[in-house]
Design a protein around this nucleic acid. Structure first.
Length: 788
DNA sequence: GCCGTATTCCTACCG
DNA sequence: ACCGGTAGGAATACGGCG
């Protein structure tokens, strides 16, 4: 019988010595189904040297390995490798672990190397069968079954190859969010000895559950949670930090308690899988903390900040209990109520964040072709790479192995020196997708690169300026094909969106898809220059950057011809004094000359530049401010400093009155000195970018992290440390304390004035000749150095 | 040992 | 665990100094 199937999760099993693929998802009637596919085996390729006897090598491989039970088949094939036609022996295996056979067989004379043995069996299936997570397929199935019986409505055996089926709607997913609270009287809880005292869960069907320990007896808590999952049977389980914290803790704790953490659909426990995520077979286990990495606007990625940014719940509408205070809240029966409420809020916020981001994540999974839970956890480079692997397969390109290589940087983009001060009516003109366009126009790609020692092809080459890297004109390279497809696809999606209401479900899904396509398009250049990339060819990235510099230089020359005043520019943009007529003609001339799409982005009413590049603020026609690069835009300045700077910018740009700004700052400082600024506005956040021991200097955030560690908290790479500077003598690092361990009365307010608020305010005001003393010295005694 | 300055380390931003 | 270009704070090294 034929069914429509939506893929949610994939895994493999070896049954009676035979590997098989398991596809978990839905049919179009809303049934949860498992489809077992026994028709596909893992494989790898042995690449042959040039001018060798392919048939002979295949034959000798068969003789040597044919009887090995792990080897199912050996076949001579034609493939491409970096664009060049090659002979390759495809070795099909009866075991999913292929690397050792690939290595052993590659030792055969005449074989240059082995590839694709490092692609997981399930991934190979998705690529080779062109099956897409979070997408619909049509296929022929028959009755099937596995032991033990999985937690699904139907089990089928695949009888045909699944074929992609055009259908945008998403099945009715059951989503369960959860959040756990663990208790230790001091420091970080450890699963060997400390209980999981609260588990809160919420579902998208409106159910809300909470399990709390009777004092420290957490067996029933975990048990109830497992039963809740069993009963609700979610398709998506979502948490915040569940990949790194919650699941590892629960797994370890359950081992200790002797409780089976049976939360998946096949009777196994959650386990570590690709890209540091934890896999729950048959479901998608999502960690919206991973997703938060994609939200560049959110600087300190706490659940409350992310929820706030996505409009899930407003800041202030929730109480926040810091990790260091949890034990106190749990121990005190009166405060325990608040802890329970806090945990419940967390579960609800996680659910809200999941709902707000699920379209994006499902579309990412579908475009890139990685399962939902993996794609959320994967870094940008790996997302791009999987998209490329899919396309490579369709082109008959072999997937290069990952290699370790040394790092040598190359020259990047041009940034112009800004003209200091305020400018009226400034237009920002930028090239649309400059790097992708350059790569397409010049066929820059790993498979079209012609090294200096090789002859030029008859069809000719494109030569990059400055670096002189050469790329064959014909045929179109891998990146050109991929990027052209992506750009075309995005255009098609946007065309389809035009016919839909902006609020409809289809519109939202398509909008998420076009955003995903754009993200991937823009990441290809970065991927090309990443030494970890399978298709890394440095000249591709280096040449693209060189062409980019050339384009901007040509644009500047043209602007000069038109008599346009350029006040700033960065990489793919120039900022000019707006003269509608001149600008229009100029844009046309540039397009003609360079064949690239350049267009006006914003026209700022007024824009302010300091002497520094990459830092400016512009006033938009609707009154909003664009603040770029300045302290306001940074996560490592305290709120107090950022707020003052933002106000100064607003006054200066909107009211054109530095004097008023000075008065404002003075007033703010007075308030600050008399304790009218909230404690949390003094917290400075910085990330630990390496293990505490490997720091060469004693930085304040490291000192604060050391204090936390001493208190029993584990501090790991990637942790954001919130610290304050307290009164006292000595270096700043001697006076940095974790903000959770201090309070307003301890703070060194003079430090905050001199090193946070004043620098942030002066960054703007110094442009107008304001002196620091204008902001600090008492009114009566001050000599007005400004307003000249 | 102190002081002012140059250099290095470190983080987070822009496009 | 995507690129290079850039700013800027704090720590540290350095040079002068009876």
């Amino acid at each position: 019988m034929e069914i429509l199937f939506y893929l949610l999760d994939i895994n493999h099993e070896v049954v009676d010595g035979r590997p098989e693929i398991r596809l978990w998802g839905f049919d179009n009637l809303g049934n949860r189904v498992l489809i077992i596919d026994r028709s596909f085996l893992p494989s790898f390729y042995l690449i042959l040297g040039e001018d060798v006897d392919g048939d002979g090598i295949a034959k000798s491989l068969l003789e040597r390995w044919g009887d090995n039970p792990a080897i199912a088949g050996v076949e001579l094939t034609d493939r491409r490798y970096f664009g060049k036609p090659v002979k390759a022996v495809k070795v099909t295996c009866n075991v999913p672990e292929m690397a050792r056979y690939a290595e052993a067989m590659a030792k055969t004379v005449g074989i240059k190397g082995h590839v694709e043995d490092d692609l997981r069996y399930a991934s190979q299936y998705l690529v080779a069968r062109d099956v897409y997570p979070c997408g619909w397929h049509v296929l022929e199935v028959g009755e099937g079954g596995i032991d033990p019986k999985p937690r699904v409505d139907r089990v089928y055996l695949a009888k045909s190859v699944p074929k992609a089926f055009e259908k945008t709607d998403v099945p009715d997913l059951r989503i369960l969010s959860f959040s756990i609270i663990c208790y230790s009287s001091r420091g970080a809880p450890r699963p060997e000895s400390n209980p999981v005292v609260i588990i809160s869960a919420a579902t998208n069907t409106g159910m809300s559950k909470q399990f709390a320990a009777d004092d420290t007896d957490d067996g029933p808590v975990v048990d109830s949670f497992v039963r809740l999952i069993e009963e609700f049977d979610p398709d998506i389980i979502v948490g915040y930090g569940n990949n790194t914290r919650d699941w590892p803790y629960l797994i370890e704790r359950c081992r200790k308690l002797g409780v089976k953490l049976a939360v998946d659909r096949s009777g196994m426990e959650p386990h570590t899988s690709a890209y540091g995520h934890i896999s729950v077979t048959g479901r998608a286990n999502l960690d919206v903390n991973d997703l938060a990495e994609d939200l560049l606007e959110v600087k300190v990625k706490t659940l409350e900040n992310v929820a706030d940014f996505l409009g899930v719940r407003k800041r202030g509408e929730r109480t926040i209990i810091e990790d260091v205070n949890i034990s106190g809240y749990w121990e005190d029966p009166e405060k325990r109520v608040k802890l329970l409420a806090f945990s419940e809020q967390n579960a609800h916020d996680i659910l809200g964040v999941c709902n707000a981001t699920l379209d994006f994540t499902t579309q990412m999974a579908n475009l890139v072709g990685l399962p939902l839970d993996q794609v959320e956890a994967a870094a940008v480079g790996f997302r791009v790479e999987w998209y490329l692997i899919r396309q490579a397969f369709k082109l008959g390109e072999l997937v290069p192995a990952r290699e370790e290589r040394p790092y040598f940087p190359y020259k990047g983009a041009i940034v112009l020196q800004p003209k200091v001060g305020i400018h009226e009516k400034v237009a920002v003109l930028d090239f649309r997708s400059l790097y992708p366009s350059i790569m397409i126009a010049n066929n820059a790609s790993p498979d079209t690169y012609i090294p200096p020692d090789q002859p030029e092809p008859r069809s000719g080459v494109y030569v990059a300026p400055e670096v002189n890297h050469k790329f064959r004109r014909e045929p179109p390279g891998f990146y050109k094909l991929v990027l052209s497809d992506l750009i075309k696809a995005r255009q098609q999606i946007r065309d389809r969106m035009r016919g839909l209401g902006p609020k409809s479900a289809d519109w939202r899904i398509l909008d998420a898809r076009q955003r995903v396509v754009k993200t991937c398009t823009n990441a290809v250049y970065g991927y090309a220059g990443w030494i970890g990339a399978r298709w890394y060819v440095k000249p591709v990235a280096e040449a693209t950057a060189a062409w980019g510099r050339y384009v901007i230089q040509q644009t500047l020359d043209e602007a000069k011809k038109f008599g346009l005043e350029v006040v700033y520019g960065d990489t793919d943009s120039i900022f000019v004094r707006h003269d509608p007529e001149k600008t229009g003609a100029f844009l046309k001339a540039v397009e003609e000359r360079l064949g690239l799409d350049i267009r006006p982005d914003e026209v700022y009413e007024r824009v302010l530049f300091t002497e520094a590049k990459k830092r400016y603020a512009g006033l938009l026609p609707d009154g909003r401010l664009d603040i770029v690069g300045l302290e306001v835009a940074r996560g490592d300045w305290c709120e107090a400093a950022k707020r003052v700077q933002e106000s100064v910018l607003r006054i200066v740009l909107r009211e054109d009155s530095p004097k008023k700004a000075v008065v404002f700052v003075r007033g703010y400082l007075n308030g600050l000195k008399s304790g009218r600024v909230a404690y949390r506005d003094f917290v400075i956040w910085k990330t630990l970018t390496k293990p505490i021991e490997s720091y060469e200097v004693n930085a304040p955030h490291v000192a604060a992290a050391k204090i936390l560690r001493k208190e029993g908290w584990e501090m790991v790479v990637g942790d954001k440390v919130g610290y304050v500077i307290v009164k006292g003598k000595g270096k700043i690092y001697d006076r940095a304390k974790p903000y959770t361990l201090s309070n307003l009365s301890e703070l060194d307010l003079d430090y905050y004035i001199a090193n946070q608020v004043l620098p942030a305010a002066m960054r703007i005001l110094e442009i107008f000749g304001v002196k620091e003393s204008d902001l600090t010295v008492a009114e009566a005694s001050k000599t007005l150095s400004m307003f000249l």
